[in-house]
Design a binder for these strands. Structure first.
Ligand SMILES: [Mn+2]
Ligand SMILES: [Mn+2]
Ligand SMILES: [Mn+2]
Ligand SMILES: [Mn+2]
Lengths: 216, 216
DNA sequence: TTTATTTGTTAGATTAATCTAACTTAGTAT
DNA sequence: ATACTAAGTTAGATTAATCTAACAAATAAA
């Protein structure tokens, strides 16, 4: 039904939408690395197809239909990442680019088989929620590690804005999901934290890192 | 490097080539379900890229380079089919269309991981050979069941021109690879065979079916 | 409230892959 | 040998997705 290109736009709109569900043409352009005029014309096309609401000079918003189709692609992406890690033995830093391609495979059976083999997972290897087949997302709200204070003990649940480089950094610190962290001290000047976990008595994490660690 | 479309042309040229390694524009057109003028222009493009040799009004032939790239795509296709059957539990009649899409995934690591998990298979679920990473094909030459005579005992090794419908027919007859078949009689008029195998004392197979069963 | 900057749109060009219609070449049959 | 048919090519149009250049609107700064 939708082309691979359209699917990537829908997914980007979904993932970049703010709390009101809106995203600007400019932001889409930056994240997709596609020039603004191209984005404008594509958004018009999606609007024709009733997948987004669009008015000149206003930010874009997915329709119910558009949100559902975006969720399906995100579901396929995250199921794939989980499959690559759990069944095929990839590291969590290796799977995104492969999933970016396989998410466009047209075969409901293929993804339902993955789902079955994985025993219906709710989260992907980076802790992001996997929408169910109706597009509903199991909504746990995590907070950034950087919002906590010295003495707090939290559990690392998900990675925000995960890049391969950041995931490799976490590997090097042996920091994986479900790890319990105790905050030893917070440097007020720049937000750098000293934390302890597992058999690591004291690790120093920059503010940039603490912002990307989602905990509960 | 090559587009998905170019990859499908290369694969078709490889698979449809005759013993001299040649295939006509007309045949490509029929099998790809793309009109002849389109095929002509695409073949010209592949010729520009040194992937085929082409002269006006002559059949097309892959260059060494083109043959290598075609073999890689076929390798990815067949590895994928094997993975879908052996690891994910699909039936051999369900995997072709999925593999047709996944064969275009750009990730050497993904396919080498499949290869490793499958312990470096040489044949796909339909008995077709999987080219190795250098594009060499393990060349066993099977013959059609229809070429044998009454009294012969053979082993079913591969399916020629397998369609989903034909594979489902084989399922219904409980006829799978490696099965030993004894030819009871051959009807001279139309080539229909009576055969026995496993716990099936006598099954009748039409000439059309016997042509598609490759045995040794 | 002007002015400058950022954001967004319009217009027109480009590339890949397809098509139809018209014409040509090659091969087959009378 | 001539005519017919099948196969192949050329020319020109179409659609999807992209771009650059130029202009317009909205927002932020002075
Ligand atoms: Mn991802
Ligand atoms: Mn994608
Ligand atoms: Mn196949
Ligand atoms: Mn394909």
């Amino acid at each position: 039904m939708n082309s691979l290109v359209e699917e990537n736009y829908l997914k980007a709109i979904f993932l970049l939408s703010n709390s009101e569900g809106e995203v600007s043409v400019n932001e889409l352009s930056k994240h997709l690395d596609i020039k603004m005029p191209t984005v404008t014309s594509m958004v018009k096309k999606l609007s024709e197809k009733q997948l987004v609401n669009y008015q000149k000079y206003k930010p874009v918003k997915l329709t119910i239909k558009g949100k559902g189709e975006a969720a399906q692609i995100i579901r396929k992406h995250r199921l794939t990442e989980m499959f690559l890690v759990e069944v095929m033995g990839f590291g969590w830093e290796e799977v995104h680019d492969i999933a970016e391609q396989i998410e466009h495979v047209n075969s409901p059976l293929f993804f339902s088989k993955m789902d079955e083999i994985l025993e219906y997972p709710n989260y992907d290897p980076h802790g992001s929620p996997i929408p169910d087949s109706d597009g509903n997302i199991p909504g746990k709200q995590y907070r950034q590690l950087s919002q906590y204070k010295a003495g707090d003990t939290v559990t690392f649940m998900a990675v925000a804005k995960s890049s391969d480089a950041f995931l490799k950094y976490l590997n090097s610190k042996e920091l994986s999901l479900e790890t319990k962290l105790t905050i030893l001290e917070v440097e007020p000047f720049d937000g750098t934290m000293k934390v302890s976990y597992e058999n690591r008595p004291s690790e120093t994490l920059s503010k940039v890192v603490c912002d990307k660690l989602l905990v509960i």
